[in-house]
Simulated assay, not measured.
Amino acid sequence: MADWLRESARVIGEHRQELIDLDRAIGDADHGENLDRGFSAVLAKLDGADSGTPAALLKIAAMTLMSSVGGAAGPLYGTAFLRAATSLGDTERIGPDDVVGLLTAARDGVVARGKAEPGDKTMVDAWTPAVEAAGTAAMAGASVVEVLAAAANAANAGATATEPLIARKGRASYLAERSAGHLDPGAVSTGLILQAAVDAAGGQP
């Protein structure tokens, strides 16, 4: 879990400008900057916390993102991570079903906080296919890494599929039909963060 959060911080930093540019087209142009600042703060909080349970680390990330990230991203990702932490409880070794549970809880947290549905051109369009793909993979007997990979691939495909959509939630919805033709930055960052989980787990048994 610590490796996932660190890899998320690295990849968000790497794609910071891309996320800014995506958000400039249909939002406030602050998604990349806000997430980069938030995950940098998470990195600082993780020092000395690697011995905590996965849930404890997720909770640290959640509270840090909520307190340090402006706009919608902080509350949405903070709620996602907090719900994911709650789903894990005291679990110390995460199995495929735990992955499905934490992704489902995270998605449900985003939906509860943002009141968005699939097709609204939000990060839910990445989270929902990720949850569905993870569940299918786990039921087929996939490993943790394989479940995460299925989720990340589906999230990235979902993010790509937001391009032709007309936004119905958030600041992008103010543009109405003009929001079509642009990727949703929250869906893109969701794909990046889930791919970071794959990369972090890739070296684990």
Rank of each mutant, 00 (worst) to 15 (best):
M1W: 10
M1F: 14
M1V: 14
A2T: 11
D3R: 13
L5F: 01
L5N: 05
E7W: 01
S8E: 00
A9R: 13
R10Y: 10
I12Y: 03
G13E: 02
E14T: 13
H15R: 15
Q17C: 01
Q17K: 14
Q17S: 13
E18Y: 13
E18K: 14
E18S: 06
L19V: 09
I20L: 04
D21K: 11
D21G: 07
R24M: 08
R24H: 10
A25F: 08
A25M: 10
D36L: 06
D36K: 09
G38Q: 09
S40M: 11
S40N: 06
V42A: 03
A44W: 05
A44F: 02
K45V: 10
L46D: 03
P54T: 12
A55P: 02
A56W: 05
L57S: 01
K59C: 06
A61H: 04
A62R: 00
M63A: 12
M63N: 08
L65K: 03
S67C: 00
S67I: 05
S68G: 07
G70T: 10
Y77L: 15
G78T: 04
T79K: 11
A80Y: 08
A80D: 04
F81S: 06
L82E: 14
A84S: 14
A85Q: 09
A85I: 00
A85Y: 03
L88V: 04
D90C: 01
T91H: 04
T91L: 06
E92S: 13
E92W: 02
R93E: 14
R93D: 12
I94E: 01
I94M: 11
D97T: 13
D97C: 00
D98R: 07
V99L: 10
L103P: 08
A105P: 08
R107A: 15
R107V: 04
D108I: 14
V110C: 04
A112H: 05
A112E: 13
G114P: 14
K115Y: 06
E117H: 12
P118W: 10
G119Y: 03
K121I: 07
T122P: 07
M123P: 10
M123E: 03
V124T: 15
D125S: 09
D125M: 02
D125E: 09
A126S: 13
W127C: 09
A133Y: 11
A133G: 07
A137T: 07
M139V: 08
G141C: 11
G141S: 07
V145W: 03
E146Q: 12
V147F: 07
L148G: 05
N153K: 12
N153G: 15
A155L: 03
A155P: 04
N156I: 12
A161Q: 12
A161M: 08
A161V: 02
A161N: 14
E163F: 02
P164T: 09
L165W: 01
I166N: 06
K169G: 03
K169Y: 01
R171N: 04
A172E: 08
Y174G: 09
A176P: 00
E177Y: 01
E177F: 04
R178N: 04
S179G: 10
G181Y: 00
L183D: 00
D184C: 01
P185H: 08
A187V: 10
L192T: 07
L192P: 05
I193M: 15
L194V: 08
Q195M: 09
A200P: 05
G203N: 12
G203Y: 06
